[in-house]
Design a binder for these strands. Structure first.
Lengths: 127, 127
DNA sequence: TCAAGATATATCGGATTCAGATATATTGCA
DNA sequence: TGCAATATATCTGAATCCGATATATCTTGA
């Protein structure tokens, strides 16, 4: 079975835009970011672990985000046991600037695409 | 020097949408399609030969476009000489349907992206 | 109790795609 | 005459995609 055509595939640029958007609403961590994106897009945008984690690492290296590890204590288990780890990402000021850039670039992108399909819209609108 | 961030990079899906749009206005050939896209996007969308020709071949195999070779006769040279060849592409009905699909998918895509950046728009709009 | 599914991070690896460079040939113009 | 433009096409190293795999913890319910 081939790739679905519901929406065009997400490029890393667009994925970065979405991830930065999510983080602009407050710190989050990988798994949650991925779930939020799926939920908020009605499952049409799916960022798998194999795309998300390398991207987050890249963004961290570029100084767009800053991170903290959280040690999640189990409610039931031994309080000295090493709980699950969660890596929190929060938007750095450089990331905020990048987000605004990406938003502008996306607007420009959309506007250009629209200029190409404008004529077809008319042609395709034959009732 | 890294890739420019003026607009997000074009995926094959988006490139196909644009190429189909151009062809919906009438038959064209590779070199011309590439020039039209550059001109109409103020040089922001550049489809190089190494992306365009494989894509056109793929589209032809999928039955989205039909082709004809044109033999361009030289004005000055020997009329029996083998002139330059030009491969014309015209939209097949399957391609028209694909174009409408891609337009719908793009609208959905844009709408989803906008839903993510909507909140940032407000946040970023601090004057 | 204990198995299954969800949570959580991360990498591997084959396939695809990207985009500059290369190849080849003709045409138009200064 | 020689160079830029026209015209199609492939090569190739790098980047990217995405399903699968690895590892480990937590939660829920039969």
């Amino acid at each position: 079975m081939a790739r679905k055509t519901a929406t065009p595939q997400l490029t890393q640029d667009h994925t970065e835009l979405i991830v930065l958007s999510v983080l602009s609403e407050g710190p989050s961590y990988g798994y949650s970011i991925s779930k939020q994106i799926a939920a908020r897009s009605e499952d049409e945008f799916r960022i798998g672990a194999s795309q998300l984690y390398p991207l987050l690492t890249k963004m961290e290296k570029q100084g767009l985000v800053e991170t903290d590890w959280e040690e999640i204590k189990s409610k039931s288990a031994d309080p000295d046991a090493p709980g699950r780890k969660r890596k929190w990402y929060r938007l750095a000021s450089k990331g905020e600037r990048r987000l605004q850039q990406r938003i502008e670039a996306h607007k420009r992108f959309t506007s250009l695409i629209n200029s190409f399909i404008a004529t077809d819209q008319a042609a395709g609108a034959v009732a």
